[in-house]
Amino acid sequence: MPVAIEYYLGLAVILFIIGAMGVLLRRNALIIFMSVELMLNSANLAFVAFARYWQQPGGQIFVFFIMTVAAAEVAVGLALIVTIFRSKASIDVDQMNSLKG
């Protein structure tokens, strides 16, 4: 196993930052959702890397739970997007300001 853990952590950091940039820069709610998935995925990569190098299966179990939470989050989030699109005919996150006082 010659690949040091720093490489995996560096890759996870880069993917996380790209995901965060997606959340901050894009206004399409679907792209923002995909960026959140990318960030969850980079956290998973760091978990699996640490599980491998500490020889602890607990890290992989956590990845399993994160996947479940991500699946639930996507199901509810996409249902919300469909509902918002029905009422506003737009999924621009800047348009979702009806609750503003």
């Binding site: 679907l30 996507v74 996409l78 999924i91 621009d92």
Partner: peptide
Amino acid sequence: VYAGAIMVLFLFVIMLLGGEKLNYP
């Protein structure tokens, strides 16, 4: 789970909404 189920759900919603060209400045 990810590349299969979640992304199929995403593609389904994108095509359902016709949202593939929706870019908001």
